[in-house]
Design a binder for these strands. Sequence first.
DNA 1: TGTACATCAGTGAACGCGCGTTCACTGATGTAC
DNA 2: TGTACATCAGTGAACGCGCGTTCACTGATGTAC
Lengths: 230, 230
Amino acid sequence: MTDSQGMRAAARSRRQRNARGQGARLTEDIVSAAIALIERTGTDEAVTLRAVAREVGIAAPSIYAHFADRDAIVMAVIGRVFDELITAIEAGLNSAGPDPVNRLLAGCTAYVTFGLANPAKYAVLFSERRISAAMAAENYPPPTEFSPDGQPVSGLGAEAFGLLVAAIKACVDSGASASTDVTSAGTAVWVALHGAVSLQTTLPLYPWPEPAQFVRQLVLPLAMISQPAR
Amino acid sequence: MTDSQGMRAAARSRRQRNARGQGARLTEDIVSAAIALIERTGTDEAVTLRAVAREVGIAAPSIYAHFADRDAIVMAVIGRVFDELITAIEAGLNSAGPDPVNRLLAGCTAYVTFGLANPAKYAVLFSERRISAAMAAENYPPPTEFSPDGQPVSGLGAEAFGLLVAAIKACVDSGASASTDVTSAGTAVWVALHGAVSLQTTLPLYPWPEPAQFVRQLVLPLAMISQPAR
DNA sequence: TGTACATCAGTGAACGCGCGTTCACTGATGTAC
DNA sequence: TGTACATCAGTGAACGCGCGTTCACTGATGTAC
């Protein structure tokens, strides 16, 4: 909120030129401006070169020194939002006690809560742009490796997926989960969590359960964790 | 395919004027053209008034006699694609035998298969436009009523959701499902199916399971159906 | 049977707008001598 | 310590494009008398 207001203020008066050697700061400011636009309008369609330039307070052609085109900006946005998502998941994991089932549920709840609290940012992670981004992903920063089925997959969601699979693995090791294929279980859980965020965002009028309860309902059966008698 | 080719041919030569009293036929042709654009480009962003007019073979202003604006066209597209989806689900249900679990799995597999085979059409069903469409939904044709938790909900996906809940209810009645709240179970299953279609479309490079097997993995636990020893 | 007329189903030109992209440029800041 | 110069971090004007929307219009078809 305060960040967004600072952004608006910067847009009103023209921004001050960066000192020498600080040119890279504008790169970060452009990404921040694109995120602010996405949050304010609710869609990444608002990220046009000219709109971003207005938001930052620079002339439109100045962007070319930092990004090749609009898609390059959106890709940088995706990278940064994935970092935020991972931070949120880790915070959720750390907020839980040592019990692996509680940790799994806390991490998954953090994922869903992040998606519901930041619908526009979450949507851009899995937007159509994502596809072309994944295709030309070699020149993009850190594509963490992850290998389900022995087949190596690199991608921007890989690190978050790795956290999920590790949390399920801990449940298997503790005897809480009966899964014999943690990657497969992780895929199922991820699909359900993504569906929950996506549908809930699209159909807000539907009477959805509370996030924590909904996550329990989805994750425990899909991770093959037998429910306590409660 | 043949339909699409007919559409392209119509776009090349100007279409023949409708006979008197047949003006409503252009309304349908405009919706068909919008769907053809969505399928060809992969996104509903391609549905502009001028692009649709070109596709149909008419002048752009002619659309105003049939639709108030672009969103009205997209809403009509959503209505027609939901009809197609429901037809596909019913075909899946009918292709299965009398066993309610097999019927549920066949219906859910049909849902996922439709989504994977028609990614652009499926995406428009749950696009952002959907939200504004749902808000101003009173003047749109048949919003089938459905009431989870006694609270009435009307919406374009309600009929498909009703099919899903009925299929789960049949499993409860036969003793195959232990669910005590079919609406809640239906919500969980729907979320998982939607997530499967959505993520699989966005991340085609990930090594996904076969649809029928994936549907089993997701639906049986979420519908509280104990798996046979196999 | 003829004819004037209303209606239907559109057309064509024009407008202003925001967009991506190009081009030549500017002015402050550091650096070599 | 002074000064010429290279570089950095941008600017401003202009282009052509597709878009939504308006306006006055056209020409075939049915209908009343």
